[in-house]
Design a protein around this nucleic acid. Structure first.
Length: 643
RNA sequence: GCCGAUGUAGCUCAGAGGUAGAGUACUUCCUUGGUAAGGAAGGGGUCACGGGUUCAAAUCCCGUCAUUGGCUCCA
């Protein structure tokens, strides 16, 4: 019998009989491993662990600890759910059922039945019942004709449409129990691996994401190999709910919405405004150090401005419509971006190559028409403030400027406790070049410079084709928050197009006119979105330097109010801000209210403190720190606030 | 914009054809209390809005608006 050489991840090479399976190799290593192997990665391709290996290969055994192991598991779970649904609702038609980041979904056409969330539990039970049967997932290669015959007989037009796009010879079916599905696989060995099931929600989804086509019922679910992991996951969801910035925003009195003001237009309450202004001044300071010049521009701009910039052509129809002056009928747009205004600032006088780079920074509030169904808390709004800046530089300065911006973004992330981040480089879709404005060579150059800058800064990056802005490629920062959720925050975008459209120039050393390059960048992205993400990241416990109320001064009773007020004022003099709780309430109550509002420090004063000229300090979430003189508290505070 | 769910006091929610409820917040009074809710009384609602069915609608039906879970979109 012939042999195959298998290279394992540690680099070791072992010889096995030809046709050996990933499972058998795992068994040779340890029984425990074999029990946990979900799939095998053979030559970089994920296979069933039971699929025979017939030539020399590299092999990685995938378990629950591997991302690909998880997605195989969830993909198989989608099939299990489909099997359960077919058993419970005969005659349903199936769309697609892929794994996603946390779990999987399946799009189902229930025909005339209206499936609603109350039925999910029944489906979960059926899934668990079928899982206990430990039915193997069996891979079958099938001819296109047979595949079509099967689904024609079944009357499933969705699968037929999918098959129509596949090539004969590449089609596989997977079968488990009484369920057969068109699927390229791979799958876990059998349904018995699935021990815990939770169906999360039901939503409508268009077939193939096309709003002109039929809307199917999408069922989201998640499964685990152990009940304990499901319990933990559900805890995480609970925690996420508690940290929802919309809930905390209300509870901590940060922001509100009003139907009269309009949807997607946040109102910043005093505490939220304090937070926002702290963030702004933090950024302002960092930007001045980095050589930016603050500028201010109006909230509206003439329609011509956006015709010049190209935004009108691209977004005019899907924007807030122009507003006009009553007499002359001049038209203005609510500004959807700050860059055209900044271009006009650049043009206020002739520029020399010696002036560059010029960096204009503005906390510019912009207005964009977002579809009704898209609005979400502070993360998706119709009016928001960007920590925007535009850098005008010479082509030879692009990379260095780009790197400086990366430094600034990383500085900001560090200061705010985002330690886990990746960068996404978004490039043009090479198949659809007409979607973008600008010449080919300019794009190629910009794309190359972004990649080089990211590489030199040692960022861990992923590259996405087709995700670029219409005027240039970009680099977006994605952070992972404390619950492991990913958010897109800061963005840096190279733009060779706008300088062209605005005819921006500088005089070079050769005394000739040259075109500058523009870099758009916003480390926070928008203050609204950033505050939303930050709120959820820290669960409303903001960094001390940032939080709206840093201290609550709590007199034990009215008798000590004067002393307490004196303490409060002295703290104010030391730049410590907060609230003075002079209500006719017992101290326990005042403490509770301050705790609920997540105020980091409580200063409690009564008879003892007044006599010793001290104050008692309590830390949010920790408790009593004992009493100390005011000066000592101030220095403790400054230490904790990193001032 | 599309599909589904939801909308009752400032907030969190109960009520399901017969004229509106709790907790909390608010106001007043009592209480002057030592590290997460002291006591009492009181005010507060076109039950999102507009139509319809009915002797009678917060409740049933239709529409609108907003919120919300997704989908599509996102300079």
């Amino acid at each position: 019998m012939s042999k195959v050489n298998i290279t394992l991840p540690d680099g070791s090479v072992k010889q096995y009989d030809k046709g050996v399976t990933g499972y058998e190799i795992a068994l040779g290593i340890s029984e425990g491993l074999a029990r946990n192997v979900l799939a095998a990665k053979v030559n970089g391709e994920v296979w069933e662990s039971a699929r025979p290996i017939t030539s020399d290969a590299t092999l990685q055994l995938l378990t629950w600890n591997d991302t690909e192991g998880k997605s195989t598991f969830w993909h198989s779970s989608a099939h299990l759910m489909a099997e359960a649904l077919e058993a419970l609702y005969p005659g349903i038609k199936l769309g697609i059922g892929p794994p996603i980041e946390n779990g999987y979904y399946y799009d189902i056409d229930f025909g005339t039945h209206e499936f609603d969330g109350s039925e999910l539990e029944k489906v979960e039970q059926k899934m668990l019942e079928l899982a206990r049967e430990k039915n193997p997932y069996v891979r079958k290669e099938i001819s296109k004709k047979d595949a079509v015959d099967y689904f024609e007989k079944k009357g499933d037009e969705y699968k037929l449409e999918l098959i129509g796009e596949l090539e004969d010879g590449s089609i596989t079916f997977y079968e488990q129990g009484n369920f057969v599905d068109l699927c390229k696989g791979p799958h876990i060995p059998n349904t018995g691996f699935i021990k815990a099931v939770k169906l999360l929600n039901v939503a409508g989804a268009y077939w193939r994401g096309d709003e002109k086509r039929k809307q199917l019922t999408r069922i989201y679910g998640i499964t685990f190999p152990k009940q304990k992991e499901l319990t933990e996951y559900l805890h995480l969801l609970e925690e996420a709910k508690k940290r929802d910035h919309r809930k905390l925003g209300k509870e901590l009195e940060l922001f509100a919405f009003s139907e009269k003001v309009g949807m997607g237009l946040p109102l910043w309450l005093p505490k939220g405004t304090m937070l926002r202004e702290r963030l702004e001044s933090f950024m302002r300071k960092a930007q001045i150090k980095a050589g930016y010049d603050p500028v201010v521009t109006p909230h509206i701009g003439g329609k011509e401005l956006y015709i010049t910039s190209g935004h009108y052509e691209k977004y005019g129809a899907d924007s807030f419509q122009p507003i006009s002056t009553p007499q002359e009928g001049e038209q203005f747009m609510l500004k959807p971006m700050n860059c055209p205004h900044h271009c006009e600032i650049y043009k206020t006088k002739p520029r020399s190559y010696k002036d560059l780079p010029i960096r204009y920074a503005e906390f510019g509030t912009v207005y964009r028409y977002e579809q009704h169904g898209e609005l979400h808390g502070l993360t998706r709004v119709r009016g928001f403030t960007q920590d925007d800046a535009h850098i005008f530089c010479r082509p030879d300065q692009v990379k260095a400027e780009f790197e400086k911006v990366i430094d600034l973004v990383l500085y900001v992330f560090e200061a705010l406790g985002f330690t886990d981040y990746t960068a996404q480089i978004s490039l043009r879709d090479p198949e659809n070049k007409e979607k973008y404005i600008g010449a080919d060579e300019l794009w190629n150059l910009a794309e190359k410079q972004i990649q080089e800058a990211a590489d030199e800064k040692g960022l861990s990056t992923i590259t996405e084709l087709g995700e670029a802005a219409f005027y240039g490629p970009k680099l977006d920062f994605m952070v992972k928050d404390a619950l492991g959720r990913k958010w897109q925050l800061g963005t840096i975008q190279v733009d060779y197009t706008l300088p062209e459209r605005f005819q921006l120039e500088y005089i070079g050393a050769d005394n000739k006119r040259h075109r500058p390059v523009m870099i758009h960048r916003a480390p926070f992205g928008s203050l609204e979105r950033f505050i939303a993400v930050l709120t959820e990241h820290c669960g409303g416990n903001f960094p001390l330097w940032l939080t709206p109320d840093q201290v609550a001064v709590l007199p034990i009773s009215e008798k000590y109010a004067d002393y307490a007020e004196d303490v409060f004022n002295k703290l104010k003099q030391s730049d410590i801000r907060g609230v003075f709780d002079n209500r006719d309430e017992k101290i326990g109550r005042k403490i509770r209210d301050a705790e609920v509002m997540k105020i980091p420090f409580m200063v409690i004063v009564g008879e003892k403190e007044m006599q010793d000229n001290k104050l008692s300090v309590r830390r949010h979430g920790e408790g009593d720190l004992g009493s100390m003189p005011l000066e000592e508290f101030v220095s403790l505070f400054r230490e904790k606030a990193h001032i």
